[in-house]
Simulated scan of single mutants.
Amino acid sequence: MAKRVDLSNTPRTSTRGSKFSRIKSTDSPKAGWTFNRVLGRIGRYFLYVWISTIVAVVLFKFVPVYFTPTMAARKIDAIQAGEPSKISSQWTPYGQMDRNAALAVIASEDQLFPDHHGFDFDAMWGAVNNNLKGKRIKGASTISQQVAKNVFLWQGRSYLRKGLEAYFTLMIELIWGKKRIIEVYLNIAETGKMTFGVEAASRKYYGHSAEELSTTEAARIAACLPNPIRFSVASPSGYVNKRTQAIKRQMKALGGKKFLRNID
């Protein structure tokens, strides 16, 4: 018969305090959690901003651009100065404007518009050289760059804004295409005091729609684009008249409305 063993009085070995009983972490959970949390939030923030820019660019490929930061700035300035602040602007599809409108602004502002991918590097390099030589500071913005700036950004000069301008220029060139870019430009370009777009300018200064613009009328609007606050379509100065004739010659040299066949 097996002998029963009484274990009640057997000494028990305690593992309390043993180096194997517990592994203590040498890391600081709180510090690691805080760093990862901050890093994660920053990453998500930039991701959301990037996604929002894509959404905005895609949206404005189809939705009319009724209001821009430039319009807002002009309105605020007028209110602060106690002047009339009503903005004249009327969105008009590209197909409802005479092609003289597009041809005139391209001849005046950006003759390589149909062919470049948003940037005129030769003109940019020439502007940089002039600026480095101490000559009058001047830019070399294409129509695409002007649209990117006026639709999505603020006015002013800074490396941040120029960098964002380059980004949005590439985006609209890729997503919008030339026809949409010129359509938006013709609708948001500042064409006079509190006046934006070729349609509003045509009705205000000529008494008819942009669908009836003549070569001279379109060229005169384009002649004022460098400084529409200083230059007047309604009361053109000698400089504006001279520039108008130069633009008309350029429109003819480009081949007239046939020049737009790659855009239409």
Rank of each mutant, 00 (worst) to 15 (best):
K252Y: 15
R203I: 09
N227D: 06
S202V: 00
L225N: 03
S202C: 09
A222K: 02
S214W: 08
P228G: 11
A246F: 14
T191F: 04
K257S: 02
G197M: 03
H208Y: 07
S209F: 05
R180T: 10
F231A: 15
K242W: 10
V184G: 06
E183L: 15
F196D: 08
A219T: 06
K248D: 09
L225E: 09
G197N: 10
M251R: 11
G197S: 12
Y239V: 09
V240G: 09
K258Y: 01
G256R: 04
T216L: 07
I247F: 07
R203K: 09
K193V: 15
A253V: 08
S232D: 12
M251F: 13
G256Y: 05
T191L: 04
L213G: 00
N187V: 12
S232H: 08
N241H: 13
P236W: 01
I188D: 03
N187T: 15
I247A: 04
L254C: 12
R249K: 15
H208D: 01
E211Q: 00
K193Y: 00
K248R: 14
Q250F: 09
F196H: 06
Q245W: 13
F231P: 10
N227V: 00
Q250Y: 06
T195N: 07
A200L: 02
G192P: 12
E199C: 14
L186E: 13
A222F: 02
Y185R: 14
T195D: 06
N187M: 15
R220I: 04
A210S: 05
K257C: 04
K242N: 12
N187S: 06
A222Q: 01
R180P: 02
K193Q: 06
L186C: 06
E190I: 01
A210W: 03
E212D: 14
K258E: 03
P228D: 08
L254F: 11
G207F: 09
E217R: 11
T216R: 00
L225Y: 12
A200W: 01
K193G: 10
V198T: 02
T195V: 11
R203G: 02
I229T: 07
E199F: 14
N227S: 12
Q250T: 11
A219K: 00
C224M: 10
T216G: 00
E199R: 11
T244D: 12
V240Q: 07
E217S: 06
R230I: 12
K179L: 00
E212H: 13
P226D: 03
K248E: 01
T244N: 13
T244V: 14
E183Q: 13
T195M: 14
Y185H: 12
C224G: 13
I229F: 03
I229Q: 06
P236E: 01
G256K: 14
R220F: 05
R220L: 07
S209L: 13
C224N: 07
K204T: 01
